[in-house]
Amino acid sequence: MSSPDDRSDIAADIPENSEFSEISNDNGGVSRRNFLKGSSVALTIPLIAKGEKIVKAGGAEVKVLGPDKVNITLNINGAQRTASVETRVTLLDTLRNELDMTGAKRVCDRATCGACTVVMDGKPVYACTVLAVDAQGKSIQTVESLDQNGNLHPVQQAFVDNDAQQCGFCTPGFVMACKALLDKNPSPTQEEMEMGLGGNLCRCGTYNGIKGAVAQASQEMKKTRTMKGGRGNG
């Protein structure tokens, strides 16, 4: 006979008798995982009243959030969006489940596949591995912002023209990774492209089309830049 499956998670590495777990027990029976996620946040984010607690850790008083839901404000595609989420909830799940922005996909949910890629302060990030509370105060750009008035962004158009998609489930992530790459490096070499898109996976096997799409989008974006007098096209 044995006990039920205790699914491993990041907190499983913390010994039962550590300071962390003692405090988490003081904190109303929060699971270790919740506490860890909450505590990792508290030291880095600005003051938020709701759901905040002061606990002792390592002899010092620190602020933690959770386990209850907290109100957060996210700057997404230039607009302030609010949501009420537990501190353990990721940016990805907040976008998808709270804000109905489902372009970013949940696939591996642990920083392997890139399907959840969004751009945060100009850099592509895995939204499945960013806590929503940590994303506050950052500028977040999602795939939904790329097409304007029915006109696709050159990266998107290039994906369509080169048939760089089949089922399309990986596509929004690739589009964002590709855009972030080209914004930074308008003419990537083969190696730079492989690096830039190396954090994304496709199961249907669309890489051949994606390579073509990067080449086309690179050309198009350079043209646009020149037309706009050297400015990027956002």
Binding site: R96, N97, D100, M101, T102, G103, A104, K105, R106, T142, V143, E144, L146, D147, L152, Q156, F159, V160, D161, D163, Q165, G168, F169, T171, P172, V175
Partner: peptide
């Protein structure tokens, strides 16, 4: 011929089962 649902997919607006709210 480019696939007809391509623009929908690249813009993240194509709704898959996983996306339904």
């Amino acid at each position: 011929i480019s696939r007809v649902d391509g623009p929908h997919k690249v813009s993240g607006r194509a709704k898959y089962t996983y996306d339904l709210n």
